[in-house]
Design a protein around this nucleic acid. Structure first.
Lengths: 154, 154
DNA sequence: TCAATCAGGACCCGAATGGTACCATTTGGC
DNA sequence: GCCAAATGGTACCATTCGGGTCCTGATTGA
């Protein structure tokens, strides 16, 4: 487990397809053909991505979608956040007050730090890194877990 | 999103509770009281953890559970794997052949590397680090994404 | 022998997910 | 001016999954 949703996976594929044809607008059906996905599903994904600003849409005839930013400026974390909302391993990481164990749960702060570390890792990988053969980075910046993970703030 | 299941969260709390009383066996109901969780839920969690070897069980009167290994030897990744199965962000990361896009999907290998990076990060945090006030590590080992993330193996 | 405790299912309910369909709106071209 | 193409938005449904509860059997110590 610890999966991302299928739609999020599709989103990365669609975005990668878009990254291979920069500038021009591509329709949802066209992208679906290229990515070999269901047109309706691709359309749904693109709508969500457009709301997040990751793709720009143009309506009407000869409309379609194109990347909202350069592939290097779109991280995997951006895609996940756009499709699934804020990244947080636990519920209490996002919404304070919902969990009635907050008062005595000593490991809450640690989960938050772990989540931050994962989010940082996902932010360090850009869409350009995912597109096959487009860019070939020599190395990915190293990711460090935030120091002192112990039960600090309680 | 990108959440862990609630039961996994409970598992860390229960394990942390167990870590605070090393050696002695504690019953499921006793642990539930300490962790302020439902006894039946705690029992369910403990059964799963016992199957994975993270806790040792003793049946009968005066039975109960205790940690199977030292808290330092139990990582957050171990807990997640025990409760939810292998860590994998995407379906194709775990089961080859299920996805009919494998042949032409260029970003599959990259997702795998991202998953490995996250798993490594989770493995670097032990149960001892989660228990409040028990150990206070000066720093957590840095985690580096595996080099060359480009669409290599295709 | 009995009570306490774990082991292992079976079961149910609610929520989330994936997928589809429908209609309104916008745009460009004939 | 009209029509086709395309997105925007919403609603809907089937399925799966997670969380929680309950029951019965096996084991152990007093």
């Amino acid at each position: 487990m610890l999966r991302i949703a299928k739609l999020t996976d599709y989103a990365t594929v669609v975005l990668a397809t878009l990254a291979e044809r920069p500038g021009a607008h591509a329709s949802a059906t066209e992208l679906a053909t290229l990515a070999r996905l269901e047109p309706t599903t691709v359309s749904k994904v693109l709508k969500t991505l457009a709301q997040a600003g990751l793709v720009e849409s143009r309506r009407g005839a000869a409309g379609g979608y194109r990347l909202g930013r350069a592939p290097e400026a779109i991280s995997v974390a951006d895609v996940i956040v756009a499709m699934e909302g804020p990244i947080g391993l636990t519920e209490c990481q996002l919404h304070v007050g919902l969990c009635h164990h907050e008062g005595h749960c000593g490991i809450r702060g640690n989960w938050q730090k772990i989540g931050v570390a994962i989010e940082t890792a996902l932010q360090s990988v850009s869409l350009a890194d995912l597109v096959p053969g487009r860019r070939r980075p020599t190395a990915i910046p190293s990711v460090t877990l935030p120091a002192e993970v112990p039960g600090a703030e309680r």
